[in-house]
Write a protein that binds this DNA or RNA. Structure first.
Lengths: 216, 216
DNA sequence: ATATTTTTTTAGACTAATCTAAATTTTTTA
DNA sequence: TAAAAAATTTAGATTAGTCTAAAAAAATAT
């Protein structure tokens, strides 16, 4: 078994790997709010365990074994988030920190039964896909709202930022997973977007539009 | 906040305090499968934090603050056990280890909502009382089956031993929480007990009778 | 292509929790 | 109540994870 800390490093590397093939020491340090020196130490340890491919100064990638662990942590995180929202009535901006703890509960049996209890959900409350027992998942095809043209329609289906502040803002605007939207107008000078939700006009900044994902 | 380890020490001290007013270093070491020297170190730390009353060589008791933490851990442990059995269909002999991990999840909100979700259960799957938000609970009045006389009747309501082996044995014998029993015969030479459950005769050893608790 | 800046690693130290072995205190027993 | 036994504490080490400061390597800029 691995420690919580090891699991957190693997998860961080996994998430960072989506942007850039190889992940740097500093990226990891930033993502985990720790220092580069600490990261180097941990990378040696993870490489020793053959969970990452690491050559000094060259950044890291996950090995298949490392990726498998990362995916199992992510599976747990997202299943717990789903549980918290759907069964315990947490709001979508309240679940992250609790799930950060719950994701480290080791029992495989627990996760699989929880999955079953909830009917094998495919997406978590933020629209992120939940890997199955084998680590397989399918992300839906999503586009940032900022990339849509005037008059295009879509369904709010995910976010690129998970901060509580951002999620609360979206909720206030009724920009919730599943809502149908239509782009009404795009401001040329500041790229802010006006869209229609439930018949209401909502005006959002370029930044918000960038972090809000829609299925077409 | 306290570490998992600190929480485990407080919980162990709480449980041991039920038998003996003051708890010894060796008792704690035994209960946590660690060495007396390690316990001494931790006791100093917990005393420093004013969670226990500790004087060298004299054993320890919990302070009100320490007891409060211990009770919150026990509350979480038992609520999770209830959840695992009632919602996720675990068997009563399978839940202990998972609950040992879950009990350290810190979110107060989580526990209270879980409690609500399950309808504020009063007892866990082994018949142990679940403390409420304030640490209050009422144990029912239970007697070991070994203390009952011939012809007395009762309802299986708890166990004194929580090992999987013991629980599995009880289940096989249909000696399950809630079952009505009647003492049919007590063997004078080995103190084994024959009792009636659901119209069947069950023969149990003195040891089993000692660890099985009934409400009258 | 050399100097400067940035990134990364190494060296050495710290904290939490643990251990073994030795010393000390308490308890038991004769 | 003194000797022996048992329990407990201290001393000194170890491991995991972290840190700061300094050294080394890589990237960038002149």
């Amino acid at each position: 078994m691995n420690t919580f800390t090891e699991e957190n490093y693997l998860k961080a590397i996994y998430h960072l790997s989506i942007q850039s093939e190889s992940v740097s020491t500093n990226q990891i340090a930033g993502s985990l709010s720790t220092k580069a020196a600490s990261v180097t130490d941990m990378l040696k340890k993870l490489a020793e365990k053959e969970l990452i491919n690491y050559t000094k100064y060259q950044g890291v990638t996950l090995t298949p074994a490392g990726e498998k662990i990362a995916l199992s942590i992510i599976r747990k995180h997202r299943l717990w988030e789903y549980f918290l929202v759907e069964k315990l009535n947490f709001k979508w901006d309240e679940v992250h920190d609790v799930a950060e703890e719950l994701e480290h509960i080791s029992s495989r049996e627990l996760v699989d039964r929880l999955d079953e209890f909830m009917g094998h959900p495919k997406y978590d409350p933020h629209g992120d896909p939940i890997p199955d027992r084998h680590g397989k998942f399918k992300a839906h095809e999503l586009k940032p709202v900022s990339s849509l043209g005037v008059d295009s329609v879509g369904i709010i289906s995910g976010v690129r930022e998970h901060s509580a502040a951002f999620l609360q803002y979206l909720e206030k605007m009724q920009l919730i997973i599943g809502k149908k939207i239509k782009i009404t107008e795009i401001n040329t000078y500041d790229h802010s977007v006006i869209l229609a939700v439930d018949g209401n006009k909502v005006h959002i900044s370029r930044e918000v539009a960038n972090n809000l994902l829609a299925a077409l």
